[in-house]
Write a protein that binds this DNA or RNA. Structure first.
Length: 222
DNA sequence: ACCCAGGGTCATA
DNA sequence: TATGACCATGGG
């Protein structure tokens, strides 16, 4: 990893954000009406296109099952059926049940909002099916905690900008960026949203534009 | 037909 | 600690 404490790296991280922000405008993330819906979406979007997640959440809403107690009470095969469009539906049915069981036993949103960020992160990581990125999505977007989410796009972008080698440990990369840019919840929120937006709506339409550095096999970055 | 998606777990070495 | 197999639908 390069020296992120240098002024050059700091300015680079800022200027990339400014460019993305000017280009795309505000993103209003995370899509979802409530913190609980954001948490459900974070689990369902694991390695999955958001358009498919929306269908699964739509199924839950249509059956009045977008609720932790209802999900815990539901039969697993029924839940899997509702989650089918989001892929990995058997795995995700189990994961979502695990998460909801923990969420209820922990006391729900108001209680969890009182928990210190590091402890809350550890608790989330203790849920089978919640890994680091999912936990950080939940911390940042459902609990408004100053956590920088590291996903595959973020690794590619920062690696190809020369800020990282790309294969750093997740938390080493996260902490380094958090030190340089934050703590700043609105900035972390918008930065991650812009990176995903940039990959989703530009690179596919114009595969040779500079944004294609976010794609797995970018001809302009190898 | 192929590639990819807003990952994570588990078994194995 | 570090790979590899596995999970699975839907859009480009």
């Amino acid at each position: 990893m390069i020296n992120l404490s240098s002024q050059a790296s700091r300015r680079k991280l800022r200027s990339v954000f400014d460019d993305l922000s000017r280009h795309h405008g505000p993103q209003y993330w995370w899509p979802g009406e409530t913190p609980f819906e954001i948490m459900v979406g974070a689990v369902l979007t694991q390695n999955t296109a958001w358009s498919n997640v929306e269908k699964a959440i739509g199924n839950l809403v249509a059956r009045n099952k977008l609720d932790a107690a209802a999900i815990v009470a539901a039969r697993k095969d029924h839940l899997a059926g509702w989650l089918r469009p989001s892929g990995y539906f058997n795995v995700k049915a189990a994961r979502l049940k695990n998460f909801c069981r923990w969420y209820l036993e922990a006391g729900g949103y108001e209680v969890l909002q009182q928990v210190e960020t590091g402890a809350l992160r550890q608790a989330l990581l203790g849920v089978n099916g919640v890994g680091k990125e999912t936990a950080d999505d939940i911390l940042l977007y459902a609990f408004d905690r100053p956590v920088f989410v590291i996903d595959a796009y973020t690794r590619r972008l920062f690696a190809r900008l020369g800020l990282f080698s790309g294969d750093e440990d997740y938390d080493a990369m996260r902490l380094a960026i958090e030190q340089v840019l934050g703590p700043d919840v609105p900035l972390f929120n918008e930065y991650h949203a812009l990176i995903v937006r940039h990959a989703r709506e530009i690179c596919r339409v114009r595969p040779r534009c500079s944004a294609c550095v976010l794609q797995p096999r970018c001809p302009a970055s190898q």
